[in-house]
Design a protein around this nucleic acid. Structure first.
Lengths: 110, 110
DNA sequence: CAACAATATTAGTTCACACTAATATTATTC
DNA sequence: GAATAATATTAGTGTGAACTAATATTGTTG
């Protein structure tokens, strides 16, 4: 699953919000998400697996608990794609501005 | 459809890449995407509609042609969400750094 | 080690959405 | 206005992914 697909799911986005603020045990995430979305422990666990597998979350063992924290690496592809796109359209706007400026200059004859 | 769902589709991402560089007529997009993904004109047109409806693309009529250009507005939600998340984890890292600094200072006794 | 707690995995179901095929709309040209 | 071109829409289908229910795994405690 690619990074954009990961972020497309609202449960995963909510989970990332939670673990971006501080480390959360799986059970804490289950409680929060269960309340908001009405889904099972199993479903949440499957989402956590995806976040792990795609580099959005890191896990630490604490006895029987698994503590999840955010992993910025997961966002690299998304950031890169968005930056590249923005670079394109910004440079287009600049080119457009240059064109307009040229137009103004050649208008001095009128 | 929400902004993250829009970006989750590879055809839509490719289309955004195209129109972020310069304006493209629908037919040009169809050609490019058809070649890469092997999908029909209809499918591309449906994607273009989604990009319009969700504020990622603006259209200009040019005779029978429809010229698509990128609309930065579509990215606002995505940017806001990513920025908010990043703000959280950066401030956590800063808090952690402060903790470590405190630890170092109280270690001077050892 | 039995009982319990926390989490993960597996198999099977359901539903959204991306697609095709066909058709409709809109604009141009003869 | 008929024919063609460019694009959009609609109806129907297939598939992937998110879910539940059940079970397995891993760790703690008496």
């Amino acid at each position: 699953m690619n990074a954009f697909d990961v972020l497309a799911d609202p449960v995963r986005r909510r989970t990332l919000e939670l673990i971006s603020q501080r480390e959360h045990a799986s059970g804490e995430i289950v409680k929060a998400v269960e309340a908001e979305f009405g889904i099972s422990q199993s479903a949440v666990s499957q989402h956590l697996r995806i976040l792990r597998d795609t580099g959005f979350a890191k896990v630490r063992k604490d006895g029987a608990k698994r503590c999840y924290e955010i992993d910025p690496a997961g966002f690299d592809d998304v950031d890169a794609w968005l930056d590249r796109l923005r670079h394109f359209w910004v440079s287009n706007m600049e080119a457009l501005a240059t064109e307009i400026e040229r137009g103004k200059r050649s208008d001095k004859s009128t």
